[in-house]
Amino acid sequence: MENVKAVPAALQTKRIKINFPLNLRKLFKQSIVLVLLALVWEFAPLTGFADPAFLPPFTDVIQALWNLILSGELFHHFAASMVRSLSGFALALVIAIPLGLTIGWYPLARELLNPVMELFRNTAALALLPVFMLILGIGETSKIAIVLFACTWPILLNTIAAVGNVDPLLIKSARSMNISSFKLFVKVILPASVPTIFTGIRMAGTGAILVLIAAEMVGAKEGLGYLITYSQYNFEIPEMFAGILTIALLGLIINQGLSMMERKLSKWKQQVNG
């Protein structure tokens, strides 16, 4: 019992550390810089480093965001953007994955179509926005179409590459077991391609938001992109920043969701840092 009393100070601090849950420390590490950033944002306009008219304090922005939420306005724009980006994204998945698998499976199709696809992929989707508007009008169709266009290329090209890069030894091994071409495709090519296809899907997810917001800024009556430009025209700067924050959050949610799905589907893959 004597010994217990004589615990040195160093050990005691160690005990305090243990009392802090590990995930709490992790949370602290992850959020500290964000908190600092918010503080700088808050105090820069207040101390005169930035013009409060153009950069309102962080709390004003949060207040504006809260008001937008309460009035239902934010949800209205959020929903409009969500429907457009998800429709375009989903359509791209449905079209690009089967198409990519087919093109990847037939070398001739790959050779024939590769130059065209490279050209389209490197054409900035937004450069085509006027064309989409001319043909499809300024309604929902042109916005969904441009999201579809922007999402298709990364998914398509990654799917084709995935099929082409399946380890030949695995194909050889499966072939030696005398399985049909169809079974080879379903049981070997497809599962082996999943990780690479998912890289394309994640790229498309980021692209979907980016392109949509820009399209909404140019010509729309609702949506987060519209909210931002509209607020700017009316000099409602806190509302403008509130819109920007929402977009950042939306992008984060989509990316995290896709990452989670990716981890689930490719849990067999060796983790580089795990």
Partner: peptide, 9 residues
């Protein structure tokens, strides 16, 4: 095979 050729998934 020398390189096992197991299906990693």
């Amino acid at each position: 095979f020398q390189q096992y050729a197991l299906f990693p998934w």
